[in-house]
C-alpha cells in the first residue's frame, strides 16, 4: 500500500484514492471533424509503459479532487505530484533506473531480487 501526497489534503493512504489512467489525454474538440481512426485512438488507446508514466489520480474518499502524478510503474515510486493546471515536469527530469529494456534481470527471478 503506497502513500500518496494529495496536493489538497497531504499524505494519505492509497486506499483513499482511485487511479484515472494516463494523464494529458485531452478530449478532442470538434470531434465531428475527426475520422473514426483518430476518434477511436482517443477513446480506446492508452499508454501502459514499464517505467515512467504520467497518470491521473482522484482523492475519492477525501476531497474528491483530481490531480496528476508521475509514477515509476515498475517500482511504484511516485516521483512527482502536480495539480491539473500545472505544467507537467519534463520526462528528462527523471532518471529511469531500470537496467535492461524490460527492467528484468537476464536470469533468475522476475522480482529482481539478485543484484546484477
Amino acid at each position: 500500500m503506497i502513500l500518496i501526497n494529495c496536493p489538497y489534503c497531504g499524505e494519505r493512504d492509497q486506499s483513499e484514492f482511485s487511479n484515472g489512467g494516463e494523464a494529458h489525454v485531452a478530449r478532442p474538440e470538434n470531434s465531428e471533424n475527426l475520422n473514426d481512426k483518430d476518434w477511436g485512438r482517443y477513446v480506446f488507446y492508452r499508454d501502459n509503459p514499464k517505467g515512467i508514466f504520467y497518470e491521473r489520480w482522484v482523492h475519492t474518499h477525501g476531497c474528491r479532487k483530481w490531480f496528476n502524478a508521475v509514477r515509476n510503474t515498475s517500482t511504484d515510486e511516485i516521483l512527482k505530484i502536480y495539480k491539473l493546471d500545472e505544467n507537467p515536469p519534463s520526462k528528462e527530469s527523471f532518471t529511469n533506473t531500470l537496467k535492461t529494456p524490460s527492467g528484468e534481470p537476464k536470469v533468475g527471478s522476475g522480482n529482481f531480487t539478485v543484484k546484477k
Partner: peptide, 9 residues
C-alpha cells in the same frame, strides 16, 4: 547460484 537467482519472496 547467483546466476540461478532466487524465486520471489
Amino acid at each position: 547460484i547467483s546466476e540461478v537467482g532466487t524465486t520471489t519472496y
